[in-house]
Amino acid sequence: METPFPQFASWFATAAETEINDPNAVSLATATADGRPSVRVVLLKSWDEQGFVVYTNLESRKSREIKENPHAQLNFHWKSQRRQIRITGSVEQVSDQEADSYFATRPRLSQAGAWASLQSQPMPDRATFEARLADIMRRYPAGIPRPPHWSGWRIVPTEIEFWQDRDGRLHERTLFTRTDTGWTVGMLYP
């Protein structure tokens, strides 16, 4: 049965070879319980057939919205490739073990930042944040553990659309839709 994952792997690998900065940058759209949308660019840190994983502070705006409305959409746009991939799905938190494993790979400064940042909250000045960061660096000289308020979200895909730019705006669009028995695939008009 055809699935979207070989095509995703191919396009993602091409982006990794050709995009100058952050080929894993992806727009993440969430919404509040009453449907007020919010979008921001994040970095995809892992993916497999179970879903697409991003990491964040669990008290951030995106996390609050995901908790209220556990549905999201990702949109990769690789301008130089003239390609987009849209991924729609439900959202679930990754396991503590998965979050711990990824957190251990982050640079020390990024680990400290996960503790020091009150993500999405008002900040009085940069000096306050830098003081919090310095305190964390002193507090954990030998290794920084993952904060309990920091983890990952997995977008479990229900739809994946591949969009390839074509001359005259006659774009090629292929939509994979998850069903109870696998995936269906079809074309969409430009």
Rank of each mutant, 00 (worst) to 15 (best):
F8G: 06
A9Y: 03
A9R: 02
S10E: 14
F12P: 01
F12D: 02
A13W: 00
T14E: 15
A16Q: 14
E17T: 13
T18C: 04
T18G: 06
E19G: 03
E19Y: 03
I20E: 09
N21E: 13
P23D: 06
V26E: 03
S27C: 10
L28A: 07
L28D: 01
A29M: 01
T30V: 11
A31N: 04
T32Y: 09
A33H: 07
D34V: 12
D34E: 13
D34W: 05
D34T: 15
G35L: 10
G35N: 08
R36A: 14
R36K: 11
P37Y: 13
S38I: 05
S38V: 06
R40H: 11
R40Q: 12
R40T: 15
V41D: 05
V41E: 02
V41H: 07
L43S: 07
L43V: 11
K45M: 04
W47P: 00
D48W: 06
D48M: 04
E49Q: 11
E49M: 04
Q50K: 10
V53C: 12
Y55N: 08
Y55L: 08
Y55S: 09
T56K: 03
N57W: 10
L58Q: 06
L58K: 02
S60E: 06
R61S: 07
R61D: 06
R61F: 06
K62S: 03
K62F: 08
S63I: 07
R64A: 13
E65F: 07
I66H: 01
K67C: 08
N69H: 14
A72E: 01
Q73T: 11
N75G: 04
F76G: 02
H77Q: 05
K79N: 12
K79I: 11
S80D: 11
S80N: 11
S80T: 14
R82Y: 11
R82I: 08
R82F: 12
R83N: 08
Q84E: 14
Q84L: 07
I85A: 01
I85Q: 00
R86N: 02
I87F: 01
T88P: 00
G89K: 00
V91P: 02
V91N: 02
V91E: 01
E92R: 12
Q93D: 05
Q93S: 15
S95D: 10
D96A: 15
D96L: 13
D96T: 14
E98F: 04
E98T: 14
D100E: 13
S101G: 05
S101A: 15
Y102L: 12
A104K: 01
A104Y: 01
T105A: 07
T105C: 05
R106L: 15
P107N: 12
P107K: 12
R108K: 12
L109R: 12
S110G: 14
S110Q: 09
Q111G: 02
A112C: 09
A112F: 03
G113R: 03
A114S: 14
A114R: 04
A114P: 04
A114V: 12
W115N: 00
A116D: 08
A116Y: 05
A116V: 09
S117T: 10
S117A: 15
S117F: 04
L118G: 04
L118V: 08
L118H: 13
S120Q: 06
S120D: 09
S120A: 12
Q121R: 11
Q121M: 13
M123I: 15
M123F: 08
P124V: 15
P124T: 14
